[in-house]
Design a protein around this nucleic acid. Structure first.
Lengths: 102, 102
DNA sequence: TGACTATATGTCGAAAATGACATATATTAT
DNA sequence: ATAATATATGTCATTTTCGACATATAGTCA
């Protein structure tokens, strides 16, 4: 971005540096959220393929039905760790994970 | 496993059910730990490629040098979330992540 | 060698994620 | 329609992970 335009924008109250930072961070954040959503969907598919209820999967994971529901719903309080552990528990392999990402 | 052998093992104090559970859980645990280790190594590679010190990367992540060191060391207190977010912050894409898993 | 920079390790209070529970809402079967 | 089963949503105390800091241990270069 040229200096003149930057000046103009700054006059309107924009902080270029932080705006850039914001865009960069939000794109990283988006990638992260989309990743979690992808795993969520795959978790649900895996569970249904195995004809398990959320309750049954919860017992397998030593977790609770509500947490399984939140995993599948992409709830923000669910970590990648829990999603990945759950997929492994359902028999997914690293290769399967890789395919989910591609 | 046949019933006779199971009986014999049980006499020696083995709980077949729980032993099986243990093996299954430990293999899931192993997959999870190996995954984190893989990402750790890749994070270090990415950082070095970019010629960043742990301190600089920490600032980029709004984290601390010690946490970056722990990430790269595969410290158990480091989550997959943090590893993945960090890789994204270094410019890795989903495709790159997929390749790391393959 | 000794200053300097980078990385590793331990600890701690704060923040985030967890399982559990209650309960609401769908979905399915009779 | 209604009973039974499955899933969604909110809350909370406990556990885990966090950034930060102190400090130890490598490496690097004068």
């Amino acid at each position: 971005m040229n200096t003149a335009k930057k000046k103009r924008l700054e006059m309107k109250g924009w902080k270029i540096g932080t705006a850039f930072e914001f865009l960069k961070l939000s794109s990283e954040e988006a990638a992260y959220v989309e990743l979690k959503l992808t795993l969520s969907k795959n978790l649900q598919e895996y569970r249904r393929e195995k004809r398990l209820s959320q309750e049954q999967l919860a017992r397998l994971l030593k977790s609770s039905q509500s947490r399984v529901a939140k995993m599948e719903a992409g709830d923000p309080t669910v970590s990648l760790d829990l999603l990945v552990r759950s997929l492994f528990a359902l028999g997914a392999s690293r290769k399967h994970l890789a395919q989910m990402l591609s």
